[in-house]
Design a protein around this nucleic acid. Structure first.
Length: 554
RNA sequence: GCGGUCGUCGUCUAGACUGGUUAGGACGUCAGCUUCCCAAGCUGAAGAUCGCGGGUUCAAAUCCCGCCGACCGCACCA
């Protein structure tokens, strides 16, 4: 650990307009960051990449639900109870500890259901000592790490800022399932903000109180997941429960991890593979990633199995960028119980069918006695279909198979959830993009990122060249590019500025442009230049900017 | 909340121990000159109530007290 690179990354993030701490003119409030113009573009690009890998290839749905949730929904989801920690405060030195942890350390088992008052009494009656000053006088209060508010003018209606976007999906399951025409597996994604009133936000955008999340809830039939086959030819580092003792992750293919029972769901195995590629596409090398299994007690209340997708940063060690959780039927069942509305999926199974005959009257009519025949009931015999004793020609009837008896199996779908912290992804992406070339800083973000941003520069500041450069800039803007126009100063300096900001291409208008309408395109990472006709520019830039990787389903 | 470190132009900082001219520099920004391809050179300009409040003093960025905020560590992190 410790490298100082993070400081450099944060410096660039601020100077180049990616992100910085909010409210600084009022001294700052920790846990809040503002995305600047480049940050907005980068976050959009990461979201787009995520959609292209996690949503579109599967035909999944995306929703956008409110940030404010009513009390009951979060009570049902378990957040009201689980986001509340009993905090014991030492009356003498004001140090704060988890009350239940203090009791446990003192060899006393507090029941889960114990109230703040009861815990306080237990601490004081047993003279539990303060680990920091040795006193034994406590006050215990619950600390809720969700932001609370009132909905409307009356106090009776408590609301909370959502701690995760996932709940907005679960509560709408009925409509979503209907919209998806009752098909499973069904994936529903949401990109939006989450809020947690952290006791102590730390490390720039790593632990924020308001943050961006990208979550996918995959609903499936646990008896038949319907998941794509996880690959057997790609190995990913998994620090699973058994491997945690040694501290060494096992390099294993998702397919093998699934068959060995290390992973409890096929979708989970598949998403881990996707996640690995996704984070790699953001510029994080494979050997700087791992999946860390959370053991019981470390996991969220809703989870049967969780892997943190972690990225190694020299300055901070392993940083969680995503959580992949097998949430089982916890959420739907809970909301079902609390709301009284059944939230289930159904599977129809045909138990038996019967064959019936449909006469094709237009054909039958060609017979003279057709009216007579039509009055009779068709009968299916071994060698054909008969009306009375008349055997019908093939063209005169059709045999249809009808459902005679079917069974509807109702079940609560299980959920597998990959959930990403967008702010953290931006940070790790910038972290691995910062590099140096001939003593200058470059931000070499991997290609799909920032591909829509282009610098346009007149080589020297004369009116003709500036005019021509503006034309080029306008036409690029019209075809969807974000253009950074920079007309002043030494050309090398302007290139350097764009390099450090991470802008992948710089278009330069020079003397030759006025003659033959060609410009030079300079690439950020190689500094190589190519002369391109101005009319071909946007097509050229789009081709160069496309990932070149195959990012969809393998 | 506790402990440690810290708070000076947009950014990074010198000055503080040892109070005393217009609080200095670098980067960045702007203007001018120069400049047809890589942070070049020259000239100039704008930009700081030294986090806030109080006290000591003839005099406070500097010393004292209080407050606010940030960063790091502890605890917490579903």
């Amino acid at each position: 650990m410790q490298d100082g690179k993070l400081d450099e990354v944060l410096r660039i993030a601020r100077q180049k307009g990616y992100f910085w701490p909010s409210y600084e003119i009022y001294g700052g409030v920790s846990g809040f960051y503002t995305l600047g113009p480049m940050g907005v573009i980068l976050s959009q690009d990461i979201k787009e990449l995520w959609r292209s890998m996690f949503i579109r290839p599967f035909g999944f749905l995306e929703v956008d639900s409110p940030s404010i949730m009513p009390y009951r929904a979060l009570k049902a989801s378990g957040h009201v109870d689980n986001f509340k920690d009993p905090m014991a405060e030492c009356r003498s030195c004001k140090a704060k500890f988890r009350a239940d942890h203090l009791l446990k350390d003192a060899g006393i088992n507090a029941p889960e259901s114990a109230s703040a008052e009861e815990l306080e009494a237990m601490l004081n009656d047993n003279s539990v000592k303060c680990p920091s000053c040795g006193a034994s006088s406590w006050s215990v209060r619950p600390f809720l790490t969700m932001f609370e508010t009132n909905i409307g003018p009356y106090e009776g209606s408590r609301g909370f800022l959502r701690p995760e976007t996932a709940q907005g999906i679960f509560v709408e399951f009925r409509d979503l399932y209907e919209i998806n025409r009752k098909r499973l597996p069904m994936g529903v994604a949401q990109i939006g903000k989450g809020f947690r009133n952290e006791i102590s936000p730390r490390q720039s955008v790593i632990r924020l109180r308001e943050f961006h999340m990208m979550e996918l809830e995959l609903f499936m039939d646990p008896q038949d997941e319907g998941a794509p086959e996880p690959p057997s030819n790609v190995k990913i580092p998994i620090l699973h429960e058994a491997a945690r003792e040694s501290g060494q992750p096992e390099l294993i293919s998702p397919a093998e991890a699934l068959s060995k029972g290390i992973l409890k769901s096929k979708w989970l195995a598949y998403f881990m593979y996707l996640s690995f590629r996704f984070v790699q596409a953001l510029g994080v090398p494979p050997d700087r990633q791992r999946f860390y299994e959370k053991i019981k007690g470390e996991r969220a209340h809703y989870s049967a199995q969780t892997f943190d997708h972690e990225v190694y940063l020299d300055d901070l060690g392993w940083v969680e960028v995503a959580g992949l959780a097998y949430r089982t039927d916890y959420d739907l069942s809970s909301h079902s119980r609390e709301s009284g509305v059944d939230l289930y999926a159904e599977e129809r199974r045909v138990l038996s069918t019967r064959k019936s005959v449909r006469l094709i009257v237009d054909e039958l009519r060609k017979r003279d006695n057709w009216q007579e025949l039509a009055r009779l009931k068709p009968e299916i015999r071994e060698d054909g279909v008969y009306l009375g004793e008349v055997r019908l020609r093939d063209s005169e009837y059709k045999i249809i198979e009808e459902v005679e008896k079917e069974e509807v199996r109702k079940f609560v779908p299980h959920v597998v959830e990959p959930s990403y912290g967008l702010d953290r992804l931006m940070l790790v992406s910038l972290y691995y993009a910062v590099s140096e070339r001939e003593g200058r800083r470059l931000l070499s973000l991997p290609r799909p990122l920032l591909a829509g941003v282009v610098g346009v520069l007149p080589l020297v500041s004369n009116d003709d060249m500036i005019r021509k450069a503006r034309e080029v800039a306008e036409s690029l803007a019209a075809s969807g590019f974000t253009v950074i126009f920079d007309e002043k100063g030494y050309i090398g300096k302007r290139y350097a500025r764009l390099d450090e900001a991470g802008v992948p291409f710089a278009v330069t208008v020079d003397g030759q442009t006025v003659e033959d309408n060609t410009v030079t395109v300079r690439e950020r990472d190689t500094w190589k230049q190519e002369r391109v006709n101005a009319s071909e520019l946007s097509r050229y830039l789009r081709e160069r900017g496309s990932p070149g990787l195959e990012l969809t389903r393998h």
